[in-house]
Design a protein around this nucleic acid. Structure first.
Lengths: 187, 187
DNA sequence: AATTTCATGTAACCAGTTACATGATTCA
DNA sequence: TGAATCATGTAACTGGTTACATGAAATT
């Protein structure tokens, strides 16, 4: 039970967002629909059930605002358990799986990390992120080279898309480290 | 019915792979598990049902090899309908949705396009790919700039990850166009 | 008065994950 | 002979999609 299975991306996004300030399901939908965080559902059929699950697990807590009015509204905030779970997820070491299958989740973790874990932990994360990405790169480079040598140009070009992606990850992490280091006194 | 709903990524991957040469479920699993195409399931619980569905839709056809032996093997090939569907999917114009949610599928389409549609169509696709990505870029750039101006450095850095990704897409498409143009007589 | 936006939800469906089950074949 | 690999599949569960449903509040 050391590492409680990683949250699904949507749960993570919700936990992170309500950690900033309490939000209703509708607020979440709006956020997903209108901000660049919007590689997410935004569909009620995803969000309301997800909120219900998180509430059942005791990670978020819904308070009904304006219970007296005709149009009451449920606003969700993080519980202590929720914060703990979020922290745990943000601190989870980056594994090969994350690098191959869940890069989006890693970036999402970064996005919430500033507020929840602070600057030093964030810089550590970025370093690990860069290193894991760099670990994976040679595998791809080799495959691309082999394909090229075999004269399978088209296939090599397809693989090189992945290469460019990973290089971009690395570049980003490096630049981000720079930016956040220099910005030490802000925020 | 003009544009039949796009194939799921997994179906597309399977159609593309069996279009190259007939494969068994196990072959597909191996491919997904060992090649850089492997951002895919590779789990039997995904592949065998997917094959069954494709067969029911008449897109692939399974032939039992060695029906006499004790260990018969089902090898799947594309039907005419399957080829037609694959072609249609590969030719589907790139929309905003694809650029935001299904980039992986676009790259997969590229990967199979060389054999199925030929070089000229592929170059056209790459041009469209680059243009759609370029269309999307300014939105992100603006968001990043706004966040920066508001002093929300961390958020701006998070968004800049997306920026780097899209720039990498564009760079790749440009380079790929180059490579494939110069390689005109190969393959 | 009509339309849009706010706001919450459900139900049917679909597809993928994990884990299980089975058994043949090949290799050490 | 025991382990690894070949090979195919199922079942329960999970979570997301689409579409539906409802109705208040605000805007035009």
């Amino acid at each position: 039970m050391q590492s409680p299975k990683p949250e699904s991306v949507l749960s993570l996004a919700i936990l992170g967002l309500v950690s900033q300030h309490p939000r209703s399901g509708y607020d979440l939908r709006k956020t997903f629909a209108t901000t660049p965080m919007g590689h997410f559902s935004s569909s009620p059929g995803a969000i309301y059930p997800a909120l219900k699950r998180l509430e059942e697990r005791g990670l978020v807590e819904g308070k009904t605002e304006g219970a007296d009015t005709l149009k009451p509204k449920r606003v969700f905030g993080l519980t202590d358990d929720g914060l703990e779970t979020l922290r745990a997820e943000l601190r989870r070491p980056i594994g090969r799986d994350d690098v191959i299958w869940h890069v989006e989740a890693l970036v999402l973790r970064f996005a919430f990390m500033g507020d929840v874990l602070g600057r030093p932990a964030t810089l550590e994360f970025l370093g690990a992120f860069r290193d894991r990405m760099a670990d994976y790169l040679p595998t791809l480079e080799q495959t691309a080279q082999e394909l090229k040598d075999e004269g399978r140009t088209h296939a090599a070009v397809a693989v090189s898309h992945g290469l460019e992606q990973y290089r971009a990850h690395i570049r980003w992490a490096t630049a981000a480290t720079q930016t956040l280091s220099q910005d030490a006194d802000r925020e």
